[in-house]
Design a protein around this nucleic acid. Structure first.
Length: 836
RNA sequence: GCCGGAGUGGCGGAAUUGGUAGACGCAAGGGACUUAAAAUCCCUCGACUGGUAACGGUCGUGCCGGUUCAAAUCCGGCCUUCGGCACCA
């Protein structure tokens, strides 16, 4: 054994060993309980950063721990390899996206291996591999068959200078991220996945995600944005045309004094003839700050009051939500209120606040009309209340009225109850090169023709020159575009858009189960009996770990895909991820690491200088995983010191410790005080570390407990064979408990203590509750809740004895003197509180 | 504006879910070893305060109230801060 721990040498040695032994390669084994541990796979941007390190170390610790707990652990890794940065590199440096991506992958893979992260690399997936993305295309075709994929025109972000579509995140302060040109909206025909067909189920099942952070579930709920209301038809005066609106506040219908429609609402084109008005509507600003409208010249009839109310085109009404038209109730909606003030429209109060079950409106009582209030309103009253001046519904509460008015309108055939969602269908078309080609052919005689399954994959054409200009780069490649129609054999053109890369990541966790890139085969898994299917065995993911930034997008898309796959008969589960951990950011000097702030820490540097085990210990110790982690160079030194102290101790006691197969430990009662205390502490630590991991993976307190045990162990010098035996036992427990956190270090010490098997084939230690129990406790005696004395007593005494001890303490006696205690409270094993 | 976290020593963070606030680590100060330094080891370390000392006392978990024998923890009202969403009718 060397005197000093050599991290470089040791880490390399065991990394090679684990890989050779395929220690973490797994097969389906129905005899063993399975555990699927997954971290969000990286985009191969070039290098691993500290965010990745933290994410993957958490997963690695869990993997090793669960393996020792006897689980068959699946822990795979892959590459989210399609995306814009590869195209940018191509444009900037003339290197092909494929080459750039593959070089990055090979570098990053080495980085991951150097960090001692153990994956079943046989199951690796790379999404830009045709063997992978052919299944994106296959899913697309399946969805097309089921009406879950469709094409429609919608507006997208468009940079007029680059002549390309931009994703929302590529629009920075209304400008193009590349050339800073102001981004506009453009109508484009695009492919969509009908995620809204699953809106209700996605919302309902969000309630089953009990082991997800509450926050993420809430964000998804809000994103789906379900609301129940009614669609009501307003007859347009002097026309057969009806104007349908959506509202959740039908209780305020009597207060509707005008209507607002989106400027793109069809009613505008149909009924407005005046050129001047049309021009004004088109000129409405898109500025969300300023509410603007133009009177269309039309009137509609309020179905309850029969009043004719003006119809406005307004810039704040969205065509995409509801029906693109609303009834405006200025007294009870802030936007309508502002609008009414601006254009001098009537405000009619129909809801008044309720106080202690009574109507609260002094003016109503005084003047007999709530309208006296209206002119002095400063803002809309949006809360529920009691209806006034609402015909037969007056006097009802908002809640009752919503029900009654909806029923009434429905009976009259004027309305129907509907549910609306904020969630929109998922636009997957991208006018970009580095993605999955959409498997569609346009034939002049047959129209839109899907590529037949047998012709998959539609391989991404390799030989392209990327300029960053022009529409979809594929559209300029004749060899790709020109094809034959699979139906009629005539001349046809291929779709040149590619898929959003979120499609790739929506099912990669399933691809791992099937064995990775080349082995993915859904058509045969459709045929296979479900019982033996690896999907049946591995899914769902038991623990998913990643950044909070995917709270909605990736996690929602994956949930959607899982449900679609279930309906296709490919999986039986409803949800892909049982338990989710969103790890915090790694920050330094109080800010997120970034090149511009110059506070980045380079993982390669750390691994080369300290070794990965030190980095792992520090990052697990400094904060619980869900919180942000403040990086500290001195903290890393501290982690290193911790490991070095253990090493030095084993080195100094090597002769004693390296005897293999430790003898039976004697009963605790035969030990001297210090020894029996160490044995007790050992069992307490096993308990503490295990519970800390089991309870929300709080590795920081697990490591703290280990440090305490190490401190006690290092202070212990054995006096006889029994005590030497005990020391050997304790050190071995320390190594076992430490092994998920510092795997190379522990594997090395495990061998140095006379073992010949891998520490990761060992069982996780178990504690003995009887030995862990304290024999003596420090009894705290309080007077009126203030600590006045501490007495060492035996544990487990009955209340009366404990009271007796408390009252016989001289200090307590001094304070109580002749006073009679009013009350004495005994908390078992902790304290006595005497109230005087 | 709405929703959701978070606020504890000089710092990162503990606290068995109402029962000794500050575990563990970092930094700092003092000491030992050393020709010296590094490394290592030992001691001190919330604030104020009494005592030569041994040893005490008071306050203290963002602020103000409340419940309780007892509150970092529960309740009500604020303040600060970090995320997410933002014309969704």
């Amino acid at each position: 054994m060397e005197e000093r721990y050599n991290a470089q040498k040791t880490e390399k040695k065991w990394q090679e060993f684990w890989e050779e032994q395929k220690l973490f390669a797994v097969k389906e084994d129905t005899e063993l309980p399975k555990f699927y541990c997954l971290e969000m796979f990286p985009y191969p941007s070039g290098r691993i950063h500290m965010g990745h390190v933290r994410n993957y170390v958490i997963g690695d610790v869990i993997t090793r721990y669960k393996k020792m707990r006897g689980f068959n652990v699946l822990h795979p890794m892959g590459w989210d390899a399609f995306g814009m940065p590869a195209e940018n590199a191509a444009i900037k440096h003339g290197i092909h996206p494929s080459k750039w991506t593959r070089e990055n992958i090979s570098y990053m893979k080495e980085q991951l291996k150097k960090m001692g992260l153990v994956y079943d690399w046989q199951r690796e997936v790379t999404t830009c591999n045709p063997e992978y993305y052919r299944w994106n295309q296959w899913f697309f075709l399946k969805m097309l068959e089921r009406g879950l994929a469709y094409k429609k025109t919608s507006s997208v972000n468009w940079c007029p200078s680059c002549e390309t579509v931009l994703a929302n995140e590529q629009v920075i302060n209304d400008g193009c991220w590349r050339c800073d040109t102001t981004v506009g909206q453009k109508e484009l025909e695009q492919w969509f996945f009908k995620i809204t067909a699953y809106a209700d189920e996605l919302l309902k099942d969000a309630g089953t995600l009990s082991e997800w952070p509450e926050k993420v579930v809430t964000m998804q709920r809000n994103w789906i944005g379900r609301s129940e209301g009614v669609e009501v038809d307003f007859r347009i005066a002097g026309s057969d045309r009806k104007l349908r609106i959506f509202t959740t506040r039908q209780d305020t219908l009597y207060g509707a004094t005008f209507m607002s429609v989106a400027k793109k609402h069809p009613v505008v084109a149909e009924l407005v003839r005046d050129e001047e008005i049309i021009k004004n509507i088109e000129a409405l600003s898109d500025d969300p700050e300023e509410k603007q409208g133009v009177f269309t010249g039309c009137y509609a009839e309020n179905p309850l009051t029969g009043d004719n109310i003006p119809v406005y085109a307004a810039n704040f009404v969205l065509m995409e939500y509801g029906t693109g038209a609303i009834m405006a109730v200025p007294a009870h909606d802030q936007r309508d209120f502002e609008f009414a003030k601006k254009y001098d429209l009537p405000i009619k109060v129909v809801i008044v606040p309720e106080r202690r079950g009574e109507v609260f409106s002094p003016l109503l009582e005084k003047h007999g009309s709530a309208q006296a209030d209206a002119y002095k309103l400063q803002k809309a009253f949006e809360d529920d209340g009691v209806l006034v001046e609402s015909g037969p519904f007056s006097g009802l509460t908002s809640e009752e009225a919503r029900e009654k008015i909806a029923d009434f309108l429905e009976k009259e055939g004027l309305a129907k109850k509907v549910v609306n969602y904020k969630l929109r269908d998922w636009g997957i078309s991208r006018q970009r090169y580095w993605g999955t080609p959409i498997p569609i052919i346009y034939c002049s005689s047959c129209g839109i023709v899907p590529v037949p399954e047998r012709d998959l994959p539609v391989v991404l054409y390799q030989d392209v020159q990327l300029s960053g200009k022009g529409a979809s780069p594929l559209s300029e490649v004749r060899d790709f575009v020109v094809t034959k129609c699979p139906k009629c054999g005539g001349n046809a053109k291929r779709e040149t858009d590619t898929m959003d890369t979120f499609v790739d990541s929506s099912w990669y966790f399933i691809a791992y189960c099937l064995g990775g890139n080349e082995k993915i085969d859904f058509t045969s898994s459709l045929r296979t009996g479900e019982k033996t299917s690896p999907l049946q065995y591995w899914m769902p993911v038991d623990q998913y770990i990643g950044g909070i930034e995917h709270a909605v997008l990736h996690l929602l898309y994956s949930r959607f895909f899982t449900k679609v796959l279930r309906d296709l008969g490919l999986v039986e589960i409803n949800e892909p991820f049982s338990r989710l951990l969103t790890q915090g950011m790694v920050i330094k000097d109080g800010a997120k690491m970034s090149k511009s702030k110059g506070n980045v820490v380079d993982p390669d540097f750390l691994v080369n200088n300290y070794g990965t085990d030190t980095v792992r210990i520090f990052s697990m110790f400094a904060a619980p995983p869900e919180r942000d982690l403040e990086w500290s160079d001195q903290g890393v030194d501290g982690a290193m010191r911790f490991l070095n102290r253990i090493w030095a101790f084993v080195y100094n006691n090597h002769d004693n410790l390296c005897i293999s197969g430790s003898g039976r430990l004697k009963d605790i009662s035969c030990f001297q005080a210090q020894a029996s205390q160490l044995l007790r502490k050992t069992h307490q630590t096993i308990k503490k570390v295990t519970n800390s991991i089991e309870r929300d993976y709080h590795f920081n307190t697990a490591i703290a407990a280990l440090m305490e045990l190490v401190n006690e162990t290092l202070a212990f010098s054995p006096a006889n064979d029994d005590e030497r035996n005990l020391l050997r036992f304790t050190i071995k427990q320390v190594i076992l408990l430490l092994s998920p956190f510092a795997p190379h270090f522990s594997e090395e010490l495990w061998r140095e203590t006379g073992e010949s098997q891998s520490v990761f084939n060992e069982k996780w230690p178990a504690w003995d509750e009887d030995i862990a129990r304290e024999e003596e406790i420090e009894l705290v005696v309080q007077i009126n809740g203030k600590v006045r004395a501490k007495i060492m007593t035996a544990a487990g005494l009955d209340d009366e004895t404990v009271k007796g001890k408390a009252f016989s303490d001289p200090k307590i006696n001094e304070i109580i003197k002749d006073k009679t205690p009013k009350k004495v409270i005994v908390v078992k094993g902790r304290l006595v509180n005497i109230v005087i």
